[in-house]
Amino acid sequence: MTHQDYKDLIHLSFLQELSEDEQSVLEEHLRDCPECGAEAGELKHLHEVIGRHSGGDITDDLLFQARRELRVALRLERAKKTRWIDLLERFNIMSYPTVRVAFASAAMLVIGLGLGYLLFVPTTSVTSVGEAGSLQGADSQSGATKVSNLRFISQQTETGEVEFTFEMVTPIRMRGSVRDNVVQRVLAQALLNEQNPGARLQTVSTLGTQLQPAALQDHEIKRSLIRALKADPNVGVRREALLTLQKLPLDEEVKQAFLYVLRHETNPAMRIDVINSLEKPVLAGKMIDKDILDVLREKMQTDENNYVRARARNVYEEGQQR
């Protein structure tokens, strides 16, 4: 290492960014190098001077003033949004029969123009697939379609003929009610396959808040929620799936999913939530299932978390008294 490298290490040492090994290498060098020793001395002095300047922190008064002003600004921001919503609502109220007829006519005209454009303006993306599997006339510029994973199978240099496979993905924008069966199916699939945890979280949250328990009973949606609860890598998604499934009756499928979580979930807060769900039949004065009692007994003895053990014991004992 050069002297410059050691000088960089001295900087990083004062910033507490060195590993133990790097620190000992530096200290060893400083013992024998007067040049780097002088550099360390100067930097120490500089840090002392800067450190002395750090002075007091921001005052509570300044913080309260900032919060008060922010509250006012947020209120204005919300009012701005509400004004738009009011305007749209007024627009609806103002639609008297005559105005309504005028708007309907204008809307028909716009729809007619749109249809005319779609029917008579030639499209650029022709995707006719021939018998041999070759794509004729496909326009690589068309839409937002992405071609990926291109693999050549064969190519004839004499005739110029090539054969290959590829994946073609076209983004689709969908608008519809979450109560619509197709929308629900797409969301259920997204919950299982989407890479982005934020999107998965929003999917569960949408299903949970927008759908009635009866709609959540749909086999595919329920299966997706259970899979998310048991296997999603993101704890937020798992928790949202748990909250949604808690709205459903504790049937065999849901019960088994909850017991799985109680046994295997690493997050203690999730395990506690599940125990709370399993306690519901007890609180309603009903018999508690033997499977549930077995897992509760196991958890009250072996769970690493004190609170989980205590809650499991509590529910187990209440359940046994029924």
Binding site: I58, A66, R67, L70, A73, L74
Partner: peptide, 27 residues
């Protein structure tokens, strides 16, 4: 918000500026 205001106060010139930054950030 305390950390945001603290960063702003260190960075800008005056307390008024720091409050402006704070408000702009949260908006």
């Amino acid at each position: 918000d305390k950390q945001v205001l603290s960063i702003a106060a260190r960075y800008v010139q005056t307390a008024e500026d720091a409050k402006d930054v704070y408000q702009e950030v949260f908006l």
